[in-house]
């Protein structure tokens, strides 16, 4: 049997003085933004909480914790997912990219530049999710994936209607939607998503 637990990741258990039960806790190796983190986690810990509370990457936000808003969107092996419904133990083995890992040090990615230039946010709380979602969405589009508004039998063409449908899993209460759509289209027009 291939149990997931990795003996190579030796982490001191009993952190914070809590007795760790082998059945309900795991040692995992979490790959985040190119860095490997050895963590001992409660199996209940979601990827979102592991990123925020254990790895210290608080750029990923908790808006609903139930997959209903998209604020916690990250990329797992390049695909966008909601980190609130993914268990940290289930994310082991995947390359996780958060908003902190999108750009290099200093320079913003084209998508980030367009969000700033076109004012694609107000409060900014949904922004990291919107940006991660946009990066994943543009990759999906590049692979030819259709959406609910793509006419059956035809190939999708990325216009505002397509962007709106594909980004609908990211709610924004400030109402920055039109600017976000413009930022995504401008980024796509620049032909470079991640720089």
């Amino acid at each position: 049997m291939a149990f997931h637990r990795l003996s190579t990741c030796a982490v001191a258990l009993g952190e914070k003085g809590v007795a760790l039960n082998e059945d309900t806790h795991s040692e995992i190796l979490l790959h985040v933004n190119g860095v490997k983190h050895c963590l001992s986690v409660d199996n209940r810990t979601t990827l979102l909480d592991a990123l925020r509370e254990r790895v210290g990457h608080t750029g990923t936000k908790k808006g609903c914790d139930h997959g209903q808003c998209g604020a916690c969107t990250v990329l797992c092996d390049g695909r966008r997912v909601v980190s609130c419904l993914m268990l940290a133990v289930a994310a082991e083995g995947a390359e996780v990219t958060t908003v902190e890992g999108l750009g290099g040090d200093g320079e913003l990615l084209p998508i980030q530049q367009e969000f700033v230039r076109l004012d694609g946010f107000q409060c900014g709380y949904c922004t990291s999710g919107q940006i991660c979602s946009a990066v994943g969405m543009l990759a999906e589009y590049a692979e030819g994936w259709p959406s609910a508004v793509t006419a059956p039998g035809s190939e999708p063409v990325l216009d505002a209607v397509e962007v709106r449908e594909r980004m609908s899993g990211n709610l924004c209460r400030c109402g920055a939607y039109p600017s976000i759509v413009r930022a995504v289209l401008e980024t796509a027009a620049r032909g470079e998503v991640t720089g």
């Binding site: 925020r52 990457h57 608080t58 750029g59 990923t60 936000k61 908790k62 958060t98 908003v99 902190e100 999108l102 750009g103 913003l108 980030q112 969000f115 700033v116 946010f121 900014g124 709380y125 922004t127 990291s128 940006i131």
Partner: peptide, 14 residues
């Protein structure tokens, strides 16, 4: 803006 698009902006729970 740059802080908000890179996840550096800290909100209360951060």
């Amino acid at each position: 803006g740059p802080a908000k698009v890179t996840g550096r902006a800290r909100y209360a729970a951060d």
